[in-house]
Design a protein around this nucleic acid. Structure first.
Length: 581
RNA sequence: CGGGAUGUAGCGCAGCUUGGUAGCGCACUUCGCUUGGGACGAAGGGGUCGCACGUUCGAAUCGUGUCAUCCCGACCA
C-alpha cells in the first residue's frame, strides 16, 4: 500500500472530546470517526485491525469445534417475550417499529434467536453437544456511552452459544471455551486474567470475565486477586470476615440523644466510638420494592450482591423523599441517618425486606438507628433487643487487604477492562422458550446452554490501552493494520526510492503487509505518522544507503540498527511467518 | 436519569461582556524553496456561527425554547 493513497487522516492535535488514551489515539491516528454518540465509523486502518482480531477468534473458535453462522441484527419482539426479556431488559434494548407497526429491536445479544434456531434444528441428543457462534455488530442503548470504542453503543462482538444435554457437558464446553479464550487473547498480544463475576442481565450461575489488567483510567472494573489463583470482579469478590472489635461498651440497651448525626462520621465523633460498633441501615428500591440493607458501618454495600440476594433486576438507592414517605406511612418521623430496621413494615404497596450483611451477625452492644430523629439505640443485641433479619448474607463490597476466601492471604486490587466473558446459562432460555430435544428414552429435555462473548472492538481499544507511548500506538504484530512501513527519506533521491521500492516489493512477495511512505513530505512528518499509526516495524532508506545500509527500528524499542536491506527484510518476513504458526 | 459545561470551516480555538463586512493555527489546492523527528514564503478554496422563534433598521453576539455533544454520578460488554 502506498501511503499517498492510504485513506487516513492523522491529526496534529488530540480531539478535545476524548478522554482515554485509546479513544484519543484512534481518532488522532485516523482509525475511527464518530458518527453519533457511541457510534463510530471504522476507517480502513481500523477495519484491518478488526478483521485481524476477528480472524484470530475464528481460527481458535473453529479449532475448538464451534461453527460460525450469522443471525439478523433486527429481531422481532415475540422471541423476547418468550424469554421474558422484552419486559426485563429495560432502556438498553433499542426498540423500534416497522411500517406495519410491528415491534422489533436491535440485537444487544442473541440468546433468544439462537435458542429459536436450536429448537428448530436440534431435535435429538445424537446431535448434541453443539457450539454456534457469530461475529456481528451489536447495539446497546447505553445510558452513558464513553471512552470511544471501550464503551460504544454499537460495537462488534463475537457471541457463541453452546447446547448440551447435561451439566457435565456444559462444564466441559465451558473449560473448552476458557482455553480457547486464553489462546485468543494471547495471540492478540494481551495478558488477561479470568475472574469470577456476576452474571447480570444475561442470567445463569457460573461466569467468568476475561480482563485486560491496565493502569489507565479506562479500566472500569475493580478486580480483586490473590497470589493464589483466586480472582474476581468487585461485584462478585468475597472475602473472609476478619476479626474486629465489634462490641460496644454499654452494659444494657438504651436510647441516646444523638442530635444532627446524619452521617456515620458524625455519629462516631459524637459518641466517641469506632464505626465497627455501628449497624448502618441503607434504604434501597429494588424493582420498586423497598429493601433495607444492614451492614457494619465501616463497610460499603455491593449493590449487585444486594440485588441478587433478593432476586432483583434493578437497584437504586432510595431518595430522601421516598425515605420520608416510608417513615410517615409506617408512623415514624425520622430522616436519613436515623433509619433502622425495626418497625418498618411496608412501602409502595410492598412489604419491606431486610437484608443483613454477615458483618453485623456477631456484633454485640451495637449502635443502630431506631427511626427517631436525633436518637439512636445503643448497647443493642440481636434477638434480645432487636430481631436479627431473616436474610443474612454477603452483601459487602470487598476491599483491598481483605482476606482471600481460598487461601486467607490479603487480596490485592487492580483495574481491568473486560474483553470477554463466559457464562453457564443452564436452562434459563431453553425452558421458557420450550427449546427441547429428545433424550435416549424419548423424553423431552431442555438444552443445557452456555454463552461466550468477546468484544472485538473493545479488544482493539484495550490493546491500545495496554500498548502505547507518548508518540502513539504500539500494536502487537498480530493485530496491527500493517506489519511494516518502508520510509524513503527523500522521494527525489533515485537510489533511495529504488531501494525502498525493491524492499517494498520483496516484503509484499513474502506476504508481509507493508506500506511504503511515498509522500513528498519531510522525514519528520513520516516518522511522526509512523509512530502515531503504530506500524510494528519501520525501515528507513536514507543517506546511509550509499554505504548499502538502511535503518531498522521496531516500534516497541528505541534501538536503531543500520543493516543491509535484505537483512531488514529477513527479520520482518521471519516475524510475520512466525505469526501464522 | 440527576449535576456541570460546550456548540463558530475536516481538527484545535478566538470573536459574544459593549449588536454593524466571520477570524486565527493546523489540514486542503497551486507555485517557489526545503528534505533524518510534525520547515518557510506567496497566492487560493472551504463556514445557513447547532436549530427555531423573538427583540432590533441590523443578531455569531441579546431573550426564550429546542436539539446535539462532552464531563461527574447512577447503570453496564
Amino acid at each position: 500500500m502506498k501511503m499517498s493513497k492510504l485513506f487516513v487522516q492523522t491529526l496534529r492535535e488530540f480531539p478535545s472530546d476524548a478522554e482515554v488514551i485509546s479513544h484519543k489515539l484512534l481518532i488522532r491516528a485516523g482509525y475511527i470517526r464518530k458518527l453519533a454518540m457511541g457510534v463510530y465509523n471504522y476507517l480502513p486502518l481500523m477495519w484491518r485491525v478488526i478483521r485481524k482480531i476477528e480472524n484470530i477468534i475464528r481460527e481458535e473458535m473453529d479449532k475448538a469445534g464451534a461453527q460460525e453462522l450469522l443471525m439478523p441484527f433486527v429481531q422481532p419482539k415475540e422471541l423476547w417475550e418468550e424469554s421474558g426479556r422484552w419486559g426485563a431488559y429495560g432502556g438498553e434494548l433499542m426498540r423500534l417499529k416497522d411500517r406495519h407497526g410491528r415491534e422489533m429491536c436491535l440485537g444487544p445479544t442473541h440468546e433468544e434467536i439462537i435458542t429459536s434456531i436450536a429448537r428448530d434444528g436440534l431435535k435429538s441428543y445424537k446431535q448434541l453437544p453443539v457450539n454456534l457462534y457469530q461475529i456481528q455488530s451489536k447495539f446497546r442503548d447505553e445510558r452513558r456511552p464513553r471512552f470511544g470504542l471501550l464503551r460504544g453503543r454499537e460495537f462488534i462482538m463475537k457471541d457463541a452459544y453452546s447446547f448440551g444435554t447435561s451439566q457435565e457437558e456444559l462444564e466441559k464446553e465451558y473449560q473448552n471455551m476458557w482455553n480457547a479464550y486464553t489462546k485468543i487473547f494471547k495471540r492478540c498480544g494481551l495478558d488477561t486474567k479470568a475472574v469470577q463475576s456476576d452474571s447480570g442481565a444475561i442470567g445463569g450461575s457460573v461466569s467468568h470475565e476475561f480482563m485486560v489488567i491496565t493502569d489507565t483510567d479506562a479500566g472500569e472494573n475493580d478486580v480483586f486477586y490473590c497470589e493464589c489463583d483466586y480472582a474476581a470482579n468487585s461485584n462478585h469478590a468475597v472475602s473472609v470476615l476478619e476479626e474486629t472489635n465489634t462490641a460496644g461498651s454499654w452494659k444494657e440497651a438504651q436510647i441516646l440523644d444523638t442530635p444532627n448525626t446524619h452521617s456515620i462520621d458524625e455519629l462516631c465523633e459524637f459518641l466517641k466510638i469506632p464505626a465497627t460498633v455501628i449497624v448502618k441501615t441503607l434504604v434501597y428500591i429494588i424493582d420498586k420494592k423497598p429493601v433495607l440493607a444492614l451492614i457494619r458501618a465501616d463497610r460499603q454495600v455491593e449493590e449487585t450482591k444486594l440485588m441478587n440476594s433478593v432476586g432483583g433486576n434493578d437497584i437504586r438507592i432510595a431518595t430522601s423523599g421516598e425515605i420520608e414517605e416510608m417513615m410517615s406511612i409506617n408512623g415514624y418521623d425520622a430522616e436519613k441517618g436515623f433509619i433502622g430496621p425495626d418497625g418498618l413494615k411496608e412501602y409502595n404497596g410492598y412489604p419491606v425486606t431486610v437484608v443483613a450483611d454477615e458483618t453485623v451477625k456477631n456484633m454485640k452492644n451495637f449502635v443502630i438507628g431506631i427511626n427517631k430523629k436525633d436518637k439512636h439505640g445503643v448497647g443493642y443485641n440481636w434477638e434480645k433487643d432487636i430481631k436479627l433479619p431473616e436474610i443474612v448474607t454477603d452483601i459487602r463490597l470487598t476491599e483491598a487487604g481483605d482476606k482471600c476466601p481460598v487461601c486467607g492471604k490479603p487480596l490485592k486490587v487492580t483495574r481491568g477492562i473486560e474483553v470477554g466473558n463466559i457464562f453457564q446459562l443452564g436452562t434459563k432460555y431453553s425452558k421458557p422458550m420450550n427449546a427441547v430435544y429428545l433424550d435416549r428414552n424419548g423424553k423431552s429435555q431442555p438444552y443445557i446452554m452456555g454463552c461466550y462473548g468477546i468484544g472485538v472492538t473493545r479488544t482493539a481499544a484495550a490493546a491500545i490501552e495496554a500498548h502505547h507511548d507518548e508518540h502513539g500506538i504500539i500494536w502487537p504484530l498480530s493485530i496491527a493494520p500493517y506489519h511494516a512501513v518502508v520510509i524513503p527519506v527523500s522521494t527525489k533521491d533515485e537510489l533511495q526510492m529504488k531501494v525502498a521500492n525493491d524492499l517494498y516489493q520483496t516484503l509484499l512477495k513474502h506476504g508481509v503487509e507493508v506500506v511504503i511512505d511515498d509522500r513528498d513530505e519531510r522525514a519528520g512528518v513520516k516518522f511522526k505518522d509512523a509512530d502515531l499509526i503504530g506500524f510494528p516495524y519501520r525501515i528507513t532508506v536514507g543517506k546511509t544507503i550509499t554505504d548499502g545500509l538502511v535503518e531498522f527500528k521496531e516500534r516497541n524499542s528505541d534501538e536503531l540498527k543500520n543493516i543491509k536491506p535484505e537483512d531488514a527484510a529477513e527479520i520482518v518476513i521471519t516475524a510475520v511467518h512466525e505469526l501464522v504458526k
